[in-house]
């Protein structure tokens, strides 16, 4: 009874997590917390990949999640380097104050 609903419950959980991440990414002003919320959204997508691959008895979900993790790691390294540089320039990593490109 539970086993066949596991995939469905995983989709539901993933939707909840994605929405929490989206709310955080929209409402928070600290760039690092926004970044963590984006990581949470990536994790929600990973969960869908794994659940769908499990229910279709395919292995491609794991491979795709592996690549998503690689991209997330690169994104974390470059993004955090950018945050450090922005903090050095304007002593704050508030998302509202990043307007250097505004001309």
């Amino acid at each position: 009874m539970f086993e066949e609903n596991l995939t469905w419950l995983c989709y539901l959980l993933s939707g909840v997590l994605f929405t929490i991440g989206a709310i955080g990414a929209i409402l928070r002003r600290n760039m690092i917390v926004v970044f963590m919320c984006i990581e949470l959204m990536l994790n929600a997508v990973n969960l869908v990949f794994i659940a769908a691959a499990g229910s279709l008895s395919s292995m491609d979900g794991s491979v795709f999640v592996f690549f998503i993790m690689t991209v997330a790691a690169v994104e974390a390294a470059v993004g955090l380097a950018i945050f450090v540089m922005v903090f050095r320039m304007q002593q704050s990593i508030n998302a509202d104050e990043m307007n250097l490109l505004k001309g």
Binding site: C10, F35, M36, A73
Partner: peptide, 26 residues
């Protein structure tokens, strides 16, 4: 949850890459 879904490799990679590397960096 990944372990429950029979994705052991991804579960270990999740702990090592996300909880270990990325969060340490953050």
């Amino acid at each position: 949850i990944y372990l429950l879904l029979n994705a052991q490799f991804i579960a270990v990679a999740q702990v090592m890459v996300y909880a270990g590397a990325i969060m340490m960096l953050i």
